[in-house]
Amino acid sequence: MKLTEDDVRYVAGLANLSLADEEIQQLSADLGEILAHVEQLNELDTTGVEPMAQVLYEAGETATLREDVEHEPLGQQAALANAPLPGAGMFKVPKVIER
């Protein structure tokens, strides 16, 4: 499986990741090598095998619903304490819409 540098740029766009040109070159090689190893899964016929979407099935369907009781939320001050740029009780970000 060969991954071109354009493939890498496309995936980086999906992942919201800015990458330097050297990183793109390196990732093209690394990901290609890892995907080549992963190809070996195709040796296995998995027709009719259920995908393992959950690790354990011990509980009933509704068992994971908690009691409907109120509890104290984190609070605005604590929630904003780690924000890179808080303001007016909110998370501030660069402009989203051009005027």
């Binding site: 493939d7 995936v11 980086a12 999906l14 919201n16 990741l17 990183e23 990901l31 995907l35």
Partner: peptide, 29 residues
């Protein structure tokens, strides 16, 4: 970063180390 989209991309590009980027990329792919 001037825009929100650039801020996401640059924050992640500058913040994550090489192995995290490799795994994010492989997983996204």
């Amino acid at each position: 970063s001037e825009t929100l989209a650039d801020m996401y991309r640059n924050t992640r590009g500058e913040g994550f180390g090489a192995e995290c980027k490799r795994r994010i990329m492989l997983g996204t792919y």
